[in-house]
């Protein structure tokens, strides 16, 4: 009966060598085990809301649909890892400028997904942005300002 495993997971550049239960979800590892609470949980088991989206080796994934042990040996980036010493990332800044958030609960997941998306599509159309957002539910904004913010960030990036 082991029930636990040793893992080595790098989160926002910091390596965590830990022994954790096999069943621990990655999102709980991030939020509760190491205390980075910017990543949120909005559904039960279905993984449909996207609030828990993080980067796994740079790609946006839902951290509630993974076990933490599956991230052993990988790089995880959370919303806390987006800003750097120079301040907010262009996308974070655009969300502020364009009022792309209200309650902020879904925001971390959207920022993580859209950061990955803009890396793949530096100059997206509105249609592409809206389709890329399907995995993130937002209840407050009606998405209008979110789409505007992603466009604005793309414009900064493509300058």
């Amino acid at each position: 009966m082991s029930r636990t495993n040793e893992v080595s997971i790098t989160v926002n550049g910091e390596r965590y060598d830990e022994t954790i239960p096999n069943r621990m979800l990655l999102v709980d590892f991030i939020r509760e085990h190491i205390g980075l609470t910017g990543t949120h949980v909005g559904c039960t088991y279905e993984g449909a809301c996207g609030a828990c989206t993080v980067h796994l080796d740079g790609a946006a994934v839902k951290s509630c649909l993974m076990l933490a042990v599956q991230a052993d040996g990988h790089d995880v980036t959370t919303v806390e890892g987006l800003a750097n010493d120079d301040g907010l990332s262009p996308l974070q800044q655009a969300f502020n400028d364009q009022h792309g958030l209200q309650c902020g609960y879904c925001t971390a997941g959207i920022l993580m997904n859209m950061t990955d998306f803009l890396r793949e599509h530096p100059d997206p159309s509105e249609d592409e942005i809206r389709r890329a957002l399907i995995g993130n539910l937002c209840r407050c904004t009606g998405y209008v300002h979110i789409v505007r913010a992603v466009k604005a960030a793309a414009a900064v990036g493509t300058k």
Binding site: T37, G38, T78, A83, Q92, F95, G104, Y105, T107
Partner: peptide
Amino acid sequence: MARKEDLRLVTGKGQYIGDIV
């Protein structure tokens, strides 16, 4: 005016019920 709340919320520093331990 851009919102004052946003700085903490876009950087993952909000404090929701599930964050209070």
